[in-house]
Simulated scan of single mutants.
Amino acid sequence: MVLGIILLFVAILSVFAVFREMKHRNIFAILFSGASALVFGWFSVMTILNALFPDTF
C-alpha cells in the first residue's frame, strides 16, 4: 500500500512537470513527463487496487 502511495505521489509530480514544461514549450520534456505520469499513475492505481482486493487482480 505504501508503494502505491509513493507511486501516486510521483505521478502527481509528473503532472505538475507537464504543465511547467508546457509553459517553457519544451516538447521533449513534455513527452517524457507525460509518459511518466501515465506509467506511474497506472502502476499506482493497480498497486492500490491489488492491496485492497488481492484476489481480483
Rank of each mutant, 00 (worst) to 15 (best):
D55A: 14
L7K: 15
V45Q: 01
F19Q: 09
A29K: 09
G4R: 09
V45T: 06
L38C: 12
N50R: 14
M46H: 11
A35S: 10
I6P: 00
K23N: 09
E21S: 06
L49C: 02
I48H: 07
L49G: 04
I6N: 04
F43N: 00
L49P: 13
L7C: 02
L31F: 04
V18S: 01
A51W: 03
T47L: 15
T47Y: 05
R25M: 03
R25S: 11
V2T: 03
L7G: 04
G41D: 07
L52I: 11
A29E: 06
A17E: 13
L38N: 11
F32I: 15
M1C: 11
W42R: 14
G41T: 02
F16W: 03
V15W: 04
V15K: 05
L13W: 02
S36Q: 10
F40H: 06
M22I: 06
M1T: 12
L7Q: 09
V45N: 01
V10N: 00
K23W: 00
F32T: 09
L8G: 08
V18M: 07
A51K: 13
L38E: 08
T47H: 14
A11F: 00
F16T: 06
A37C: 12
A37K: 09
G4D: 11
T47V: 01
V10C: 06
V2M: 04
V2G: 10
P54E: 15
A37G: 14
T56Y: 10
F53A: 15
L38F: 10
S14T: 06
N50D: 15
M22Q: 13
I12G: 01
M46P: 08
F16N: 14
A35P: 11
V15S: 04
L49Y: 11
G4I: 01
L7Y: 13
F40P: 05
A11C: 05
K23C: 05
K23T: 09
S44Q: 04
F9C: 14
G41F: 01
N26P: 02
F57H: 12
I30P: 15
S14M: 06
M46F: 13
L7I: 00
V45W: 04
I6Q: 10
A51L: 00
V45A: 00
E21H: 08
F57G: 14
A37L: 05
T47P: 08
F19P: 13
T56F: 11
F43A: 05
K23V: 06
F19R: 14
T47C: 04
L7A: 09
G4E: 07
M1V: 12
F57R: 07
M1R: 12
V18G: 06
I6V: 07
F9I: 13
L3K: 12
H24K: 11
I5E: 15
T56K: 12
